[in-house]
Computed example of a mutant assay.
Amino acid sequence: MYKNIFQQAWVTTDLDRAVEVFREEQGIGSIAVFKDFGLPVADSEPLVIDVGLCYVGDLQFEIIQPVSGPADLYRRHLPDSGDFALKYHHMCSVLDSAEEYGRVLEDYRRRGVTIEVEGGFGDGGRFFYADTRDAVDHYQEYVLLDEATNEFMASLPRN
Rank of each mutant, 00 (worst) to 15 (best):
K3A: 13
I5Q: 12
F6Y: 13
Q7S: 06
V11L: 03
L15M: 01
D16L: 11
V21R: 07
V21N: 01
F22A: 06
R23P: 00
R23C: 06
E24V: 13
E25Y: 13
E25T: 13
S30K: 14
D36T: 05
D36M: 11
D36S: 14
V41N: 09
V41E: 11
L47F: 07
I49A: 04
C54V: 03
G57T: 08
D58M: 07
L59S: 10
F61K: 11
F61T: 08
E62L: 03
E62V: 06
Q65Y: 04
Q65D: 05
P66M: 10
L73H: 14
Y74K: 04
R75I: 04
R76I: 12
R76V: 12
H77V: 00
H77G: 07
S81E: 03
S81R: 08
G82A: 10
G82M: 04
D83M: 06
A85M: 05
L86G: 07
L86T: 10
K87I: 14
C92Y: 00
V94M: 11
L95Y: 08
L95E: 05
S97I: 06
E100T: 13
Y101D: 02
G102I: 07
L105Y: 13
E106Q: 15
D107M: 14
R109V: 09
G112K: 09
V113T: 14
I115H: 11
E118H: 13
G119I: 05
F121H: 12
G122M: 10
D123S: 15
G124A: 10
R126Q: 15
R133D: 04
D134M: 12
D134F: 07
V136S: 10
H138M: 14
Y139Q: 02
Q140G: 03
L144D: 02
D146N: 12
T149F: 15
T149A: 07
N150M: 15
N150V: 06
E151G: 00
M153Q: 02
P157I: 10
R158G: 11
